[in-house]
Simulated scan of single mutants.
Amino acid sequence: MKVAVTYEKETGNVFQHFGKTQYFKIYQIEDGKILSSEVIDNGGNGHHAIPPYLKSLGVETLILGNRGQGAIEAIAASGLKEMPGITGSADEAAELFAKGQLKPNFEAKCVHHGEHHQ
């Protein structure tokens, strides 16, 4: 299965504002283990176009930080499973996901667009 994580290249952490994500780290996970990973850009897509773009790459699950209502709807419409509210290392989040131990926080939402999220 392919899993995408919103990715902050400078820190290796889960990027916290879905709609402004420039990069994703894509993991190939099988039998509870990460087989490979690669960093890709957002394909020139933003906000509502990102979920269908990821789906077209074969991604099934999206691990992310915060997202606004429009992103929530776009993710659902694309058929991606989401794991929101994740912070810290993207690699650690992917490892926890592979083991079935990643706990999403569905309350994680952007409510103040126009500001930069840290």
Results as ranks from 00 to 15, higher is better:
22 Q>W: 13
47 H>P: 07
37 S>N: 14
72 I>R: 15
109 K>S: 14
29 I>N: 00
112 H>A: 07
75 I>R: 03
118 Q>S: 08
96 L>N: 12
74 A>R: 10
1 M>P: 15
61 T>Q: 01
69 Q>E: 15
50 I>T: 06
86 I>M: 02
67 R>G: 09
68 G>N: 12
62 L>E: 01
57 L>W: 12
104 P>Y: 03
42 N>V: 07
100 G>I: 03
77 A>C: 09
109 K>Q: 12
114 G>H: 08
76 A>Q: 14
101 Q>C: 06
97 F>R: 06
75 I>W: 02
112 H>Y: 08
95 E>P: 00
54 L>R: 14
102 L>S: 09
6 T>C: 08
7 Y>M: 04
15 F>R: 06
118 Q>H: 11
97 F>N: 03
92 E>N: 11
19 G>I: 13
104 P>E: 01
34 I>R: 01
109 K>T: 14
71 A>E: 05
102 L>E: 00
4 A>D: 08
15 F>M: 04
23 Y>G: 00
2 K>M: 11
25 K>V: 07
91 D>Q: 10
78 S>P: 10
38 E>K: 14
31 D>A: 14
17 H>V: 14
74 A>M: 04
37 S>D: 10
14 V>W: 07
103 K>I: 15
95 E>D: 05
52 P>C: 00
86 I>F: 02
18 F>C: 01
51 P>M: 05
49 A>N: 15
34 I>M: 01
90 A>Q: 02
23 Y>W: 11
112 H>I: 07
38 E>T: 13
78 S>I: 04
7 Y>L: 03
30 E>T: 15
11 T>K: 03
69 Q>S: 15
102 L>M: 02
11 T>Q: 02
94 A>R: 10
49 A>K: 15
106 F>W: 08
85 G>S: 13
110 C>Q: 12
90 A>H: 11
67 R>P: 05
51 P>G: 03
60 E>A: 15
61 T>H: 06
23 Y>D: 09
95 E>A: 07
7 Y>P: 03
90 A>W: 06
5 V>K: 11
